[in-house]
Write a protein that binds this DNA or RNA. Sequence first.
DNA 1: CATAGATCCTGTATGC
DNA 2: TGCATACAGGATCTAT
Length: 291
Amino acid sequence: MPELPEVEVVRRGLAEHVTGRKIKQVEVLHPRAVRRNIGSLTDQLVGQRIRCVSRRGKYLWLPMAGHQFALVAHLGMSGQLLVQPSGAADEKHLRVRIDFVDAGPQLRFVDQRTFGWVMTAELVPDSGGGHLPDIVSHISRDLLDPAFDEEGCITRLRTKNIEIKRALLDQALVSGIGNIYADEALWRAKLGGRRLTGALPAAKIRELLKHAKSVMASALDQGGTSFDALYVNVNGESGYFDRQLSAYGQEGEPCGHCGGPIRREKFMNRSSFFCPRCQRQGPGRRPQDKV
DNA sequence: CATAGATCCTGTATGC
DNA sequence: TGCATACAGGATCTAT
């Protein structure tokens, strides 16, 4: 499940292998892989040159040189952006293939579960003098963005009164965090994911964001170290680098803080892993919630 | 408007 | 063995 560190690894790989290249041909092999596109993806991209590769949170985009639009991609659950030799066999779940006039390796979008997508979008000014796709403008800056507004983020979280884990997963509040790193950050902060944001002290939220940032930064460091092989990192396979997970997926395993068993519970149609002893769900816990 | 829940998708794992 | 069910979850849509 690609979250911010994995997507950043993909961004770096793409930046190295597709920047400056001119698109010759675009082949869409699965209609659902192209989402909400205004017009023909192929017509829009053929003849364009990729200027760079940008990212905010889990969204990637490739601005086209001399234009105010970009190819935007989201990997969803299982999406991969691969750089493959043109002779390589089609992947089973190959959705979009992009050929370049230089006849070098192709850019391929592969996605088993089709939660991911690509599309073109207009570039609009962002809050920092740059640009971003209009469809990404509702996404908040992520924790690794130098322009991330920590105090503003804390204020927005505390203004709402929702469960803190849901807030961490809301990409409009703070982006880049998915289910895995949300659980890890909450565990490090010894904070129950069902605590309500409105009842949390600003300092506690600040601490939680610090943990979220550090857990993702260290994951990115690991992914960045094994980064030299041409078709490995961009493939996303090493994008799922070994994470040191203390909570996620650790049901029944001893908590690294207290030794008690990590528990799993349903939350937002997925799983939450936490230590019920270290991560108390009160006092913001509602009466009907089990502990 | 704010919040909570359902939904999309398919390969893999598990249960009977 | 085979069939059925559960599970993985990011973002968006719908309902309250």
